[in-house]
């Protein structure tokens, strides 16, 4: 049997993060060492509580560490907060967090960055970081533990976009939240897979998919179905299409089976001083005069993506 890939999941635990965590914890290909949280879709405190609740729902014993409550520099943008609540609900779990029991096995580590460093040191093989939120924790890790870079196999991140935006015309939410952190990560020299909007917008579930999850997934499937109802309505208001786009499951799905994505080596830098383009992940597909520093996903096999989630939910029937 092939060794499982050791991963740390860094999350701002909203609705699509919950899918990603469920997928990772159900995967025979991945070994989840720990979960770190940060602000983003909800506050860092909210993300931590949500992570613990989801782990208890899934009956998985994984330690959680609370991380950054704001970006490296400056404050959280107001529009980031309001957008998070609009899409993920006030509690980050589609306004359904109250239906989950309060955490019993509360094992919260004190500092996400120190905890990541400890996990990486302890693991015999190189560790992959799955980034589902703002890159603040990961940038802090890279800066404060430079000796651990060689112990990191790479970063699979949901974030960025080559040609569009969601929070801003050219800015994707996770990068908009902390552009400087994203730039530190992209300049780190680590192997990076950037799952941006070009690919993640194709990672959606329709009503029939959600019904299937409810039917096959026992109490877990029923909770995920309920959690996704307000989420899908919010996205319909934004895009006009009744689809639950599960951005954050994309990097996890890629780690489980890279053929789910079509990616291309590009040079990516974060625009830090644009009037309209700050936080844009400036993606040079041609790499004219520059070296590639990230594999950028441009397409996704939706059938395979849905099937991976069906297989995951089957474990909870």
């Amino acid at each position: 049997m092939v060794d499982r890939i050791p991963v740390i999941i860094d999350t701002d635990m909203g609705v699509d993060d919950a899918y990603s965590v469920m997928l990772a914890l159900s995967s025979p290909q991945l070994k989840v060492l720990g979960i770190t949280t940060s602000y983003g879709n909800v506050s860092a405190d909210g993300a931590t509580v949500n992570a613990i609740k989801i782990l208890e729902l899934l009956e998985k014993r994984v330690r959680v560490a609370k991380g950054a409550s704001g970006p490296l520099f400056g404050k959280i943008k107001k529009y980031s907060n309001s957008r998070g609540a609009f899409i993920h609900g006030k509690d980050g779990l589609g306004n359904m967090g109250h239906s989950l029991s309060d955490p019993v096995h509360v094992e919260v580590e004190s500092d996400a960055v120190d905890y990541m460093a400890a996990l990486i040191r302890k693991e015999e093989t190189k560790v992959t970081i799955v980034s589902l939120g703002p890159l603040t924790n990961i940038a802090s890790l890279i800066i404060s533990y430079p000796e651990l870079r060689r112990r990191i196999d790479g970063i699979a991140m949901m974030g960025g976009s080559a040609y569009s935006g969601n929070t801003l015309p050219a800015g994707e939410s996770n990068i908009v939240a902390d552009p400087e952190a994203a730039q530190i990560v992209l300049q780190s020299g680590l192997r990076i897979v950037m799952c941006g909007l070009e690919a993640t917008q194709k990672a959606y579930f329709i009503k029939d998919d959600l019904e299937m999850f409810r039917l096959i997934g026992g109490s877990v499937g029923r909770f995920y179905y309920d959690m996704t109802q307000d989420y899908i309505s919010a996205q319909e208001k934004l895009s006009g299409e009744r689809r639950a786009v599960i951005h954050d499951s994309v990097p996890t799905a890629w780690l489980m089976n890279p053929s789910v994505l079509k990616a291309k080596a590009c040079h990516v830098e974060v625009d830090l001083n644009g009037q309209y383009t700050r936080a844009c992940t400036v993606t040079d597909e041609i790499c004219a005069g520059v070296k590639p520093n990230a594999m950028v996903a441009f397409d996704l096999n939706r059938d395979m993506f849905v099937k991976m989630h069906i297989d995951a939910f089957k474990q909870y029937r």
Partner: peptide, 19 residues
Amino acid sequence: EQRSELSGGRTLFDFGKRF
């Protein structure tokens, strides 16, 4: 975009009338 070093001269189009 007029200010950015990386994106100066980029034209941005708000097709979805979202912004």
